[in-house]
Design a protein around this nucleic acid. Structure first.
Lengths: 196, 196
DNA sequence: CGTTAAGCACACAGGGCGGTATACATAACA
DNA sequence: TGTTATGTATACCGCCCTGTGTGCTTAACG
């Protein structure tokens, strides 16, 4: 989602500041956190004038909100849209997190901002609910007895793995995946959609 | 753990500034977060001179570490020590979180500090490991096939509930408890120590 | 080409932060 | 009572933060 580096001649150094800012924000906010990343630092890293940054975004809060918005489509949709997997496999695939993903940015933002009213916190809630809903959809497709419940449970497992990975500095997703397997097997009557 | 307000005449060595600082820190750090609570504000709320605060704690980092230390014994030991419950009930009781507890402070600290080297982050890891270990002990007592695994799984559920409660602003512990019940029943062979 | 909007460089304001200095007050205990 | 450890009051320092003001450059496009 960030392949707009530059064309034949350095023609992209003038335009496209907004994209540079956002992609740099994604990197720095993840690596260092939101509060520990100053606008000066961010602008320098993005090779963008501070003035320009503030012409694109009314303030840091707005930038943070936009930064979180950037994840919506891409994070887990790749999993849910895989038609090569059975619904059950899709549910489990949600726990195959590439090690490049340090932590769900929504949890980090909610904790760092510490203000449920902040637009970014709203996005975080919306996103979490959306993920749970998509999990529930897939659970229904897989023939779960109570898809909503299973979706909520799996979402909780993902968040637990994310939080625990962060605190312990050790990958907790395998543990979550193991739990997920148990829950899924318990929730699907016999093998309605369990296997292809 | 903070019933040392004052005796007949402030009976102990001057006055308990240190205790006031720590109990105020617990309150403010929880309510507002660590980074959003300045030392000026904290000292004012604790009715303590800033000078005094810095005589007790070398700096804010040290205060934060000490603040986290204050939780160690009290948080979950009350659950594990309850002899009136079966081991299985004790495992489930860990999910009966009183609504006064907004979020595990260790997760918050780890996210806010964003530095695994920070002493407070170390405490956070140690605490999380200790909780998992005690859960594993209880799981063993309950006759679980793989106590370590079950302990780790239950710990993940607790963290997931904490994180999700924070982000969504809605209690997620009942969901976690439901998962825990499934896991426990699956992990204990038949009913070895399942009931009294 | 010329126009125009986008971007740039850079200094600076205003404020909050963690932390310190100085000078003084009082509780506890011998 | 006097000494000492503890706490108080307040001003202050240097730093970094978000955010602006001003004037200039240049890319993009008709």
């Amino acid at each position: 989602m960030t392949e707009l580096e530059k064309g034949p001649t350095g023609r992209r150094r003038g335009r496209g500041a907004r994209e540079r800012i956002l992609s740099t924000a994604q990197q720095l906010f993840r690596e260092q956190g939101i509060n520990r990343t100053g606008m000066n630092e961010l602008c320098a890293a993005a090779e963008v004038s501070k003035r320009t940054a503030y012409q694109h975004f009314g303030g840091k809060d707005e930038l943070v909100a936009e930064y979180l918005r950037g994840f919506d489509p891409s994070v887990l949709s790749g999993v849910f849209d895989r038609t090569d997997l059975t619904p059950r496999e899709r549910l489990l695939a949600a726990f195959d997190i590439p090690p490049t993903t340090p932590l769900c940015p929504y949890i980090g933002a909610a904790v760092e901002l510490h203000d449920p009213q902040h637009p970014a916190s709203q996005y975080a809630r919306d996103y979490k609910k959306a993920v749970a809903a998509r999990l529930a959809d897939t659970a229904r497709e897989a023939g779960a007895a109570d898809p909503e419940q299973l979706g909520e449970q799996l979402a909780l497992l993902i968040d637990g793995a994310a939080a625990r990975t962060r605190v312990l500095d050790a990958d907790a997703f395998p543990t979550a995946a193991a739990i997920a397997a148990v829950l899924i097997d318990n929730a699907i009557p016999a093998s309605v959609g369990g296997d292809r």
